[in-house]
Design a protein around this nucleic acid. Sequence first.
DNA 1: TTAGGTTAATCAATCGATTGATTGAGTCAA
DNA 2: TTGACTCAATCAATCGATTGATTAACCTAA
Lengths: 228, 228
Amino acid sequence: MKPPPDSSQDTRQRLLEAAVLLFAQKGFDGVGIREISQKAQANSALVQYYFGSKEGLYLAAMSFLFDQGIDSVAALPAPPSLDEPEAFAKALDCLKGYIHAFLEELFACHDPAKCSRELQSAAHLFWTRELMEPAAGRVDIILGHVRPYADYLAACIRVLRPDLAEDAQFLMGSSIHAQIMFFHRDMSMISLLRGSAYGPQDVGTLATHITEFSLRGLGLGNTLQGVQ
Amino acid sequence: MKPPPDSSQDTRQRLLEAAVLLFAQKGFDGVGIREISQKAQANSALVQYYFGSKEGLYLAAMSFLFDQGIDSVAALPAPPSLDEPEAFAKALDCLKGYIHAFLEELFACHDPAKCSRELQSAAHLFWTRELMEPAAGRVDIILGHVRPYADYLAACIRVLRPDLAEDAQFLMGSSIHAQIMFFHRDMSMISLLRGSAYGPQDVGTLATHITEFSLRGLGLGNTLQGVQ
DNA sequence: TTAGGTTAATCAATCGATTGATTGAGTCAA
DNA sequence: TTGACTCAATCAATCGATTGATTAACCTAA
């Protein structure tokens, strides 16, 4: 019965979402609190009121973003343990699903300014940006977001190549992650070199390529015949 | 017989080199011309005198950097053409050499602040940074630097997998480039997840891993038996 | 129900600091 | 003298942050 309450948390939320998009696009130094407040249709003083400082808003934006982004990995079936029956086949499915889900998440929208699922993909811009110049205090937030991804992939590889040493398994996982993220991060360069960009409609193609390339790279090329 | 001439071009050069290192580290918005001038032991007004503006200095720094960085690729033997005798074996060697040379260049120094060959590796920080938010006018400079790399790898793959369509060949090249750059760009994350970072002493290990992973990924796993 | 008091939320105005850029005087070799 | 070069001083603009006033909602005693 109440008219739009429009109370505190609404404005705070608008500031947070505007901050997420602008920080992801332009970085911490690239945006001012005036621009953020304007996009959020709020007063710039509210940044200090709600978040203490511009840095506080930045940290809040990252946390806000990562807290609701883990879904795509958590939604996948848990990777099997080594002694589980049919562990190998399950790990294979997990790996394929992981590659596809990760790509889907990244390509939900490549341009955060034009997409409704913009928040989902903006998280990885923070990820990339923060890892280029890690700042004290921010590292933990990023790491908390990254670790589930790394752990999931590592668990798959542990089952698929239990004969490898841990170092070698880590290298394998890195090679796979490298490919997944490359097609998102370096889209600008790909677009320039290739003439056109990969978009959400290419997720299937990219997932297939990365999966096949990586399974062969893992030394499991024989498993491709029976499946592909 | 002259005491340090300290003439114009010397100051200009000092500004350029200071700009390269600081811009690569902190990005365009992260550094001020005062900080750059101080590091270069020059007056901040000289930025306008020599380069017109801060942006002019930034562009000059990128050009300066990329003009002298192509050596590492140009030093490699030219990739063979398709009809050349022993083209396959040559392309194989070129690919291996390329992966190693590229990694060597990237890992010449990971921390541009502490390294004598700092300029070499700083170029790729520009590369990564610029591709995240491409600005008009800067894209061409980056592309001019990237293209020789992309072309070299593409030429190798064309010989190694002539049966593939051009699109598929591009995907193969992307998967290889993705791995090479991942271990450099995401060193911060790797260091956090793995406990320690890869350094210049690990170039051999990384090159071997990427080469083997990629050759299997390319569907050339059989060639590894005879070599590795 | 009403009047007075308390609180959180929001605002315009302004702060000191820093930014990139400009100026005009100065230096020094040719 | 001339012209290329360098400097301290200064500019307007913008930055993040602070302030004091204003609004609206709720609580409570009369």
